[in-house]
């Protein structure tokens, strides 16, 4: 349905997006995962026809949209990272304005406003000014505005940044419902691994402007099928101990937090003896050890040597 072909964007000397080829099939939910600065938003802007690529192409049903973006814009609903709304207008007034821009009027406009407000759960507060809403509510109106013209494809750029867990769950549930129940095609961009894992069938992982891995969640996790992730928690921070443990032979990747350490090791590796030996030498108390199957976060760590939050 929608594809990009070797999409590239260069800003002066910076290569923001480098040779990115993506594909969205009708009705599927695709995640674009990567840390901040990976080039996700730039890629999204080009796919949305808001930014001209330096090279490459964006095609809808096999037809390039670069010269005539009209067809693409008609089927596209874009939820930008920023709250692209008028704060001094109410949710209802915002939706009415954007609906009229898409040619809706009269009863049809009112019906559509009612539908999207129900969808995001704000029907009873539609008359309040957007500036009086919480961050989460504003994000929900942001999604509603993108839905006014009944788009076939929903492109979302980090739609849950900076909102409370309750609003986040509401938003994720709404998106999941749109995809699973209404068959809407979704391209979901985030640096939150768990959101992408929860919502998406397929995932593209981006870093430094490039797609470094792609496939279904299972396929990506299979990259780490011969590995396992060990979480070790301590009573306090031990930087020297963490460094020593990271250097144990066989440890493939290590990610230290304040009082915990995550190690990716080959399956079957006998780590615990070394772990407790080193902990004792450093006078550290191990409070918890947890072995888990790999997540997309682990895949990213393995592929880039960095975490998504780096």
């Amino acid at each position: 349905m929608l594809e990009t072909d070797k999409l590239t964007k260069k800003f002066k000397d910076t290569l923001a997006v480098d040779d990115v080829s993506l594909e969205l099939r009708k009705g599927e939910s695709v995640g674009l995962l990567g840390p901040n600065g990976a080039g996700k938003s730039t890629a999204i802007a080009m796919i949305s026809t808001l930014l001209k690529p330096s090279s490459g192409d964006v095609r809808l049903h096999g037809k390039s949209v670069l010269k005539d973006p009209g067809d693409m814009r008609r089927v596209l609903g874009v939820v930008p990272q920023k709250i692209a709304l008028y704060e001094e207008l109410s949710a209802y007034e915002n939706l009415k304005f954007f609906g009229r821009l898409y040619g809706l009027s009269g009863k049809k406009l009112e019906q559509r406003i009612g539908y999207v407000l129900d969808l995001v759960g704000l029907a009873d507060r539609k008359k309040e000014l957007v500036k009086h809403y919480s961050g989460g509510m504003q994000r929900r109106v942001n999604l509603a505005a993108a839905m006014m013209h009944e788009p076939e494809v929903l492109i979302m750029d980090e739609p849950t940044v900076g909102i409370d867990p309750q609003s986040r769950n509401h938003l994720l549930e709404t998106i999941r419902r749109l995809n699973r129940e209404e068959g809407m095609t979704v391209l979901y961009t985030s640096h939150y691994m768990e959101e992408v894992e929860k919502l998406c069938d397929r995932v593209y992982i981006m870093d430094h402007g490039k797609v470094i891995a792609q496939g279904t969640k299972e396929k990506l996790k299979a990259i780490l099928s011969d590995q396992e992730t060990v979480w070790i928690e301590f009573d306090q921070s031990y930087p020297e101990l963490f460094k020593k443990l990271s250097e144990i032979e066989g440890v493939q990747h290590a990610d230290a937090d304040e009082r915990s350490l995550k190690l990716i090791i080959p399956k079957g590796m006998r780590l615990l003896a070394s772990l407790f030996h080193e902990a004792e030498r450093h006078g550290a108390q191990v409070t918890n050890v947890h072995v888990q199957t790999p997540t997309l976060e682990d895949v990213f760590l393995r592929l880039t040597g960095r975490t998504l939050r780096d």
Binding site: S48, T49, L50, P69, G70, V78, A84, L85, L101
Partner: peptide
Amino acid sequence: RQMVFERIRLSNR
């Protein structure tokens, strides 16, 4: 700045 302009552009007006 708030990208409302981009949203207006996307409406294809």
